[in-house]
Structure formats: structure tokens, C-alpha cells
Design a binder for these strands. Structure first.
Lengths: 233, 233
DNA sequence: GCCTCTTGAATAAGTCGTACCTAATGGGTT
DNA sequence: AACCCATTAGGTACGACTTATTCAAGAGGC
């Protein structure tokens, strides 16, 4: 059986990763490499490589004579974009979205403040462009276009902060925004207040006003958290 | 050559990971699995498993007919504790410590604020205990003991925040604190002001005062950043 | 008789070597 | 310039062997 395009490894990894993060294989349960090889109809070689990757994400632990044990949630590398994707696709997406949004609300204001100090002219220009793009797509069911601008906007801010750790959170934010748009039921157009705030943030960064940038970003974060409270359990 | 105790895989992974993150194998350089197998005197199987793990960390990219290419720094999973450890052990430790400390300064105040709301009696008790431990070891060259209390203290705050993403940053903070103590030259006892702030933070959390907890944690962060400016280039 | 310690067989992961498949590449041909 | 083919290096498979753990049975001491 060779149905996938991108290699056996990828398919098996994705399937197992999803099963584990979604709780189908609860912590403590044991997998056997031979069984997995049979189940996926691949060689043990492939399985072992997958297990090693899952092990590096601290999702499982492999011990001789006992098998591959699923580790408790607390040890997982929850910052791994792959893990985040799996978890957002799984059962506890709401909880996941919430903790990620809280993370954003801590990071992004500081990042925006730094961006107001360090952003290049180029970054300011693209930021404004993206903000205008958000305005343009904020009405009339253009959710996908809006999402694209939104992701790009936040990515620029994080990059412009000049801090590597912030910059690398761009992928995480992208996953959160995408998850919100796609999985959360969003019939309506985005909140006009949020759109305005993005425009104002672009201005604050362009004018090099760290305090304003931080304050505005905090407002955006509050809005995002509020939105979760309204739509989720 | 079989010097390691914990498996060939671990040894090879650690060596290669370190070499890549320290810039010895600059982005764009190509590794060949056969060569690596020869070099480490292990089978290609082991090398392949290692490569797969490095690939999952986005440190390398494996393509047919071309080999294993080291990817540019921007794509690395810099939140992977393993990667952090490698980078802190490598050449650009100062830069790394700085960006991680900025990250802390964004996260920990928010975490402390949440901890003041959600901490259990148990957590408050252990927090106070650790603060006292820091006081007790703050004089007389007991750096290792101090470090242990410091790490535990911050870990409790992050855990008590109730946010999973914050909690999982405990390892990162631990690496930063350990790196600061071990690699940065710290002849002297810790800053007495910092010790006092930790005691006050424990109080603020115990008394359920989010604003105070956030403010005090910001002061701790400012101190840590200042310390870096003084000691590093 | 019950408990502890030792010993040994069973087990599943770890490692190895080889053989073969497949895709990307680069050069040579038309 | 477009096409084709040999080469190359990773991808996959299989089978044999090694080693750490575990668990249980048996020996010894209380």
C-alpha cells in the first residue's frame, strides 16, 4: 500500500501524532513497533523513524522490553507547530485555542512595542498595506482573504520586533487565526472594531510610538479573548 | 567507537545537533548519510533516525539525490528545549540568552498575574518556601543551591498560572537560569534586590493581588535584562 | 510459612548489513 | 532549447543478531 505522495514516513507520523494528541491513545497506553508496522503495512524501519520523531516531541517514550509508551500531556512539546496543528485538529480545540490566545495576549503587546522601535521603513509599508487589505476584505464574506492579511499582519509585527523568539511565534499565531476562522463558526464578517485597531496599530508602529502600539495590541488581544468567551463553552 | 551510555542514537543526535546549532555546519551545507555513518561508525539506520529528528526540528532538510541540507536559522524550532540547550552551549550564547530573557519579560508578568488569581494553597506554600530558600542561599557562594530554588520558584509561578503554554515554558526558563549561572561569569552572590523581589512576589501571589504580582515580576525581568547589559557585549 | 534475594528465560526495542526502489540532477544528444 | 538517460543519494524493506528489562520461578534466610 503506497497511497500517499510525500513518503510513508509523513503519513504514518501524521496519523499517529493525531491519534495521540487527540487522546485516542491516552497517556500510559503502549504501542508495539511490530504491530504498527503491520497496521500501516510498512517496514519496522519506517515505524522506528516515526517513533523517534514522536519521542523528540516528548509525545512518547520508548523503552526496551516494554514498548512505546504515550507520555502524559504535561511533557509534550506544545510549542512545536506540528503538535499545535494536531491538537487544533483534535478534540480539545477550544481549550487549545484559549491557551494559545492567552499566550498571544502576553507576547504580542511586547512585540508590538519593540516593533514600534525597530521596524524598518519596508516593514512599516507592508504593515500598512496589510491593514488596508484587512479593511478591504472586512465586508462581504471574504473571510479567506481577510485571514491571509491578518496572518501576514501579525507575522510582520512579530518579525519587526527584532526578537527571534517572538518572530518564530508567527507560525503559531497563523495556526490560531486559521483555526479560529475555519473551525470556529464564523458566519459573520470580522468585528469592525478589530479592523480599526489593526489600522491604528500600523500607524503607531509607523510613527514609532511604542506605548500606543502596546496599548492597541492589548485591546486587540482583549477582543480576541472576548470573542472566545462568546463563542466557546 | 562506542563511548556513550545511552544509545548510539542519542550520542549522534547530540553531536550533530550541537554542530549545526553552533554554526559549524552553516545553513546550506550538505551532509551525506553514508559519510555520517562512517564518521560515527554506526549504521545508516541510526543516522537516518537522527536525521529524521533533526528534520522534525527543522534544522535540516532531506532531499533525494542531493543529501541532507542544513536549513537557515529562521526556520529552526527555537522553542524546542533540546535546540535551546544546544544553542546555549554554542557560540552565540549571549544573543540567545538575551532573546530568551526578553521572552521571559513578556510571559512571566502575565503568568504571575494569573498565578495570583489561580494559585492553590499548596502552590502558595511552596512558592514561599522557595523564596525563603533563595534568601537562605543568597550569600556565601551557594550559587548552585540558589539556582535550584530560583528555577523551582519560577516553575511554580508558571504552573500556577493555569495556562498550559506558560507552564511548558518552565523548562526554557530553567535553561536560561542555569545558563546564566554556569556560563556567564558569576563570581558574586546574587543581587539582593532580586532576592527581595522574589519574596515580595510570593507574598503578592499568596494574597491574590494580580496587579502587584505583575508589577513585581516586571521589576525582576528588568533586573535580569539589566544584568545582561552589564555582563555581556 | 512468609519474605527477600538471586537467577534465568522471555520479550521487545536497538543495531546492523544488504539489497533494491525511486526521484532529482546534470550532462550529453538530438 | 528541448529531451533523454545514466548517476547518485536518499527511501524502503527484510532478516539476523544484540541488549536491556521485566517477570516469574526457585533458593535461601527469618
Amino acid at each position: 500500500m503506497t497511497t500517499q505522495s510525500q513518503g510513508l514516513h509523513t503519513h504514518v507520523l501524521d496519523t499517529l501524532g493525531l491519534e495521540i494528541s487527540s487522546g485516542q491513545c491516552p497517556p500510559g497506553s503502549v504501542l508495539r513497533t511490530d504491530e504498527l508496522a503491520q497496521r500501516f503495512d510498512v517496514s519496522r524501519t519506517v515505524i522506528r523513524e516515526v517513533i523517534r520523531v514522536l519521542e523528540s516531541m516528548h509525545l512518547v517514550e520508548s523503552r526496551r522490553r516494554v514498548g512505546v509508551t504515550v507520555r502524559p500531556t504535561e511533557t509534550w512539546n506544545v510549542y512545536d507547530p506540528q503538535v499545535i496543528r494536531w491538537r487544533l485538529a483534535g478534540a480539545d480545540r477550544p481549550r487549545q485555542l484559549r491557551s494559545l490566545t492567552v499566550l498571544r495576549s502576553a507576547i504580542e503587546p511586547v512585540a508590538a512595542s519593540l516593533a514600534a522601535r525597530h521596524a524598518t521603513a519596508e516593514q512599516c509599508a507592508e504593515l500598512t498595506e496589510r491593514a488596508l487589505g484587512m479593511v478591504a476584505t472586512s465586508r462581504g464574506q471574504q473571510l479567506e482573504g481577510y485571514l491571509e492579511h491578518d496572518i501576514a499582519f501579525h507575522r510582520i509585527v512579530l518579525n519587526a520586533s527584532g526578537n527571534e523568539m517572538f518572530a518564530r511565534l508567527g507560525d503559531v499565531v497563523a495556526e490560531v487565526l486559521a483555526g479560529r476562522t475555519h473551525h470556529q463558526v464564523m458566519f459573520e464578517d470580522p468585528d469592525p472594531a478589530a479592523v480599526t485597531l489593526h489600522v491604528r496599530l500600523a500607524e503607531a508602529v509607523r510613527e514609532g510610538d511604542p506605548e500606543a502600539a502596546e496599548r492597541i495590541t492589548k485591546e486587540i488581544a482583549v477582543g480576541a479573548l472576548h470573542e472566545l468567551d462568546v463563542l466557546a463553552p
